[in-house]
Amino acid sequence: MQKHIVVIGAGPAGLESSANLSNLGFRVTLVEKEEVTGGHLNKWHALFPSLASGKHTIEAIVKGLNPGIKIQTATKVTGIEAVNDYFTVSGHNGWQEKADAVVLTTGFQLFDSHRKEEYGYGIYENVITSADLEKQFASGKEFVNRQGKKPERVGFVHCVGSRDEKVNNLHCSKVCCITAVKQAIEVKQMIPEADVFCFYMDLRMFGRHYEELYKQAQEKYNIQFIRGRLSESTEDKDGNIIVKVEDTLLGKPLRIKVGLLVLMAGMEFPPATKALTNMLGLKNVSDGFIQPLDEVLHSNLTEIPGVFIAGTCSGPKSVSDTMADARSAALAVAEYLK
């Protein structure tokens, strides 16, 4: 009999795992809590380092889906139970399926920047997040701040909700550094006369072509990188944002006014997924993300046979890393069901 796999979460990891599993001859049900598939990528205008369109990327992934895959949207998974040699997966709306294997591709949630109270997100109108900026880019509208003015200066704050034990997140979210560089360049392309600043602790340009993009940001776009973590932001009379940071390479505090401040919100493990992993008895390590059976040898396996992981539910990843991880998870499932 054809084996059945339930994949939970239809972002890039879930879509790509499902496509591969279906191509390998399995029956696949892809369940998604939202009305549409695509996850965070739906809201992301352009991807680093190539500036490929988020929308086109999702469309290309969806195009690869075999028509045999059953896509169950608007269904929030509320129960997973291991029964003998199969799993019963059930949703909030009464949906239920039996599965021979389950792939968790539940992804991340964006750090809620309100929690960094001192940065003023939700209070000062010209403090926005990287996700808000992508929405603004995607809207195709003229690039203006909340006063309807072209900002003369734009600041990017790295590591918001990442590498910060004050918000209980010790981990690096990996993608924010390169996203800031990408978005800084996009801002400069829209407003060439603007001065753009990145406030960073370390620049982690780990991926291929990332360092090149960083160099381009400096050389071609004159984006300034100031090494220091933002301590606070406030608003002046005209709605500009005044930021305080230490220029750690000069060893002096620095004060600068920007017309728009962008917070590079990091990745967190979503509490809703935590409920599922608790139900399964899966280990989350101190950073909250799901711990694979072995980080080097079995990165898609969990300690429960038949439960697999792919994408950012096991830690922050770029889209390309997520895609590779999704394909590798499909192979791991095939191996298990052989």
């Binding site: 160099k215 050389e219 505090p253 620095l254 004060r255 006014k257």
Partner: peptide, 29 residues
């Protein structure tokens, strides 16, 4: 005040130097 007041500082020198020697931008400290 030890604080670098970026807004109050004069940035002419930096601009002229960058025009005369654009590799200034490339420094990664």
């Amino acid at each position: 005040d030890r604080q670098i007041d970026f807004d109050a500082n004069n940035h002419d020198v930096g601009k002229i130097v960058a025009l005369a020697e654009p590799t200034l931008h490339l420094c990664i400290s």
